[in-house]
């Protein structure tokens, strides 16, 4: 199997790439939503994200990727003590997925063939401590969305059905992509994404040509191309790791906090999640850039990504929320 198109080789789409990197630095930001036209590199970027994520340490054989044996759930009957290094899980949530497959269910094959009542963990278990990727997230069925909201909120998956009573941790970062022409996303789910990015086909001929050129090289000269870009990906991963370490030593002044709060007030975003995301994301940017302190510039850089999906929709405003955010950022952080 060939590896996905490398992340660093994606041309343009700087905002999307920035958002992905930031969420890799601080998973606490809460995931990325990528909305845009077809053929703009959404899926490519998400599939490439896995290569950027540093590996995690898990107990071998644990279905929920627990970091130590005492955190493994009882029902899994994990007998091994070995701690192994695994790539951070990036789990695909397909659209037509059933509830059983998401939360896990009675293992019907075991039940039928050996009469044993066993729990078969679902996608949420596999995504614990990792990423859950939903392509075409706006087409996801409502009852699955409800489920995800509930689990994303509590960080725990509880299964009470068919005589099973099971709970396990399910902390994951949501990454979604979709084409807005095909449907809207419920505001409740929108709110769960930390950052939201809008992508469009590049309008600049040279950029377009560069995209085609690299894609062509990837397909025609796979080894040479990957050799070159794998190096870049590794460097990027090192920077992400360094930024993670740097995150806790960053200073955040009250002035920046005030900026965040004022921005959210001026935009009238609901709740306090806007401020928190704004703060965490600014911090991640500052860490990535190796700055000593979070500044207003950092806030300005990521304000659109962190806030554009938190505005109340105004049907009369044809300009769209990006323009509104930019305008307010200009006013508040002048």
């Amino acid at each position: 199997m060939t590896q996905p198109f490398p992340f660093s080789a994606i041309v343009g789409q700087e905002e999307m790439k920035q958002a992905m990197i930031l969420t890799a630095i601080d998973p606490g930001i809460g995931g990325v939503l990528v909305f845009g036209d077809r053929g703009t590199g959404k899926s490519t970027a998400v599939r490439a994200l896995a290569a950027l994520l540093p590996p995690i340490k898990v107990v071998a054989g644990c279905p929920v990727n627990s970091p130590s044996l005492d955190r493994c759930p009882d029902w899994a009957h994990v007998g091994q003590h070995d701690i192994v290094e695994r790539p951070t899980p990036v789990v695909d949530l397909p659209l037509g997925v059933t509830e059983d497959r998401v939360v896990g269910a009675l293992d019907i094959e075991k039940a039928l063939s050996s009469g044993e009542k066993a729990f078969e963990p679902g996608l949420l278990a596999r995504a614990n401590r990792g990423y859950l990727y939903i392509d075409e997230v706006n087409l996801l069925e409502d009852h699955i969305v409800d489920l995800l909201l509930d689990v994303a909120q509590s960080g725990e998956n509880v299964v009470e059905r068919e005589g099973l009573s099971i709970r396990h941790p399910a902390r994951f970062v949501l990454v979604g992509s979709g084409n807005p022409e095909e449907g809207e996303l419920r505001p409740q789910l929108l709110d769960r994404f930390g950052l939201s990015v809008e992508v469009a086909s590049p309008k600049d001929i040279d950029t377009r040509i560069e995209v085609i050129r690299r894609r062509d090289a990837y397909e025609m000269d796979y080894d040479g191309f990957m050799g070159k870009w794998r190096q870049e990906d590794a460097e990027l991963r090192d920077r992400i790791l360094a930024a993670r370490a740097h995150l806790n030593t960053l200073k955040t002044s009250d002035a920046v906090l005030r900026d965040c709060a004022e921005l959210c007030l001026a935009l009238g975003s609901d709740g306090l999640r806007g401020e928190l995301t704004l703060l965490k994301t600014s911090r991640a940017v500052a860490a990535f850039e190796g700055a000593e302190e979070v500044t207003r510039d950092h806030v300005r850089k990521i304000a659109s990504s962190a806030l554009r999906h938190r505005l109340r929709r105004d049907p009369l405003d044809e300009a769209g929320s990006t323009t509104r955010v930019t305008r307010v950022v200009e006013e508040v952080l002048a």
Binding site: M1, P94, L95, E136, L139
Partner: peptide
Amino acid sequence: QPGLAARLAGAIDMGA
């Protein structure tokens, strides 16, 4: 259905 389309699109994208 969009669900199947997404899966087939994924299969094509993966270069399998």
